[in-house]
């Protein structure tokens, strides 16, 4: 009953869903269900409650101090409708972070659920494990890592100010695609301040098992951070040239002097 497509062999050239076959005008049953499962995985990635406790524990186990925070969006449905609330801290978190900040730091790190808590559950701890040696090698002073719930990228600006950081890196769950429900994005902003635009940030996206590896992402973030400090800028004026140093997918062991 199913008409198979004789070009199935070409499917290895693209992740796109080609050569699916058909029954009449329609998709075969198995394809309809395969799609439904992929959509269910992406939906669950958006709506799965963020297990901030486990993520905070995992980060603390790496030897980082950890603070907790929440945005002004009280729940997931509000978060999705009101991006402005996800960009600023809730009142209690603002007070707590102001009280908990210590000496000025080079870098503040925010781990935010964003649009995929599944991404943060899967990628945040292994990424930070890969990034930690770069912090040590460069001698950067790191503020406590802030694990933030119902948060968007710009929340990092307020955190960076409160923690007196020269730069802020936000690790955040990206909008899940059907074939990539657990992809982490990294956003770096020099001199964080409220009102920074996205054009003033550098982004490293698609950090996940089948995408950019944790080791490669950690190298790229370290490269960008070092260059940001050296040139005094992030965003469109700082072009990511770290690819030139990657040999295949393997990053070098040290940053160029």
């Amino acid at each position: 009953m199913i008409a198979r497509d004789p070009w199935l062999a070409f499917a290895r050239h693209t992740p796109a869903r080609i050569a699916l076959g058909r029954t009449g005008a329609s998709l075969p049953t198995a394809e309809v269900l395969r799609f439904a499962l992929a959509h269910a995985q992406a939906r669950d990635a958006v709506h799965m409650p963020f297990d901030a406790d486990a993520v905070a524990r995992g980060i603390a186990d790496l030897g980082f101090s950890v603070l907790r925070a929440a945005s002004a969006a009280p729940a997931r449905d509000v978060y999705l409708r009101r991006p402005d609330l996800g960009r600023r801290l809730g009142d209690a978190s603002r007070v707590a972070l102001a009280g908990g900040s210590g000496a000025p730091a080079d870098l503040a790190i925010v781990v935010a659920d964003g649009l995929s808590s599944a991404a943060v559950h899967a990628q945040a701890v292994p990424f930070l494990a890969a990034f930690k040696p770069w912090i040590a090698a460069q001698g950067w002073r790191c503020a406590p890592v802030v694990v933030a719930e119902q948060a968007r990228v710009a929340l990092g600006d307020e955190v960076g100010v409160l923690l007196k950081a020269r730069a802020v890196a936000v690790l955040i769950g990206e909008r899940p695609g059907l074939s990539s429900p657990d992809s982490l994005g990294l956003y770096l902003t020099l001199a964080p301040a409220q009102g920074r635009s996205d054009a003033e940030r550098n982004c490293i996206s698609n950090v996940r098992g089948a995408g950019l590896s944790h080791a490669a992402a950690a190298f790229k973030l370290a490269w960008l951070l070092k260059e940001a400090f050296r040139r005094g800028v992030t965003g469109i004026a700082l072009k990511d040239e770290s690819d030139l140093l990657l040999e295949g997918a393997t990053p070098p062991g040290r940053l160029p002097a």
Partner: peptide
């Protein structure tokens, strides 16, 4: 028209080649 309605570059779902055949029918 996107294979299987899944845009693997832009990460969203649109309509597929099959959807167009459905409408024509």
């Amino acid at each position: 028209g996107i294979p299987g309605a899944d845009d693997v570059m832009l990460n969203y779902q649109s309509t597929s080649f099959h959807d167009a055949l459905y409408v024509r029918e």
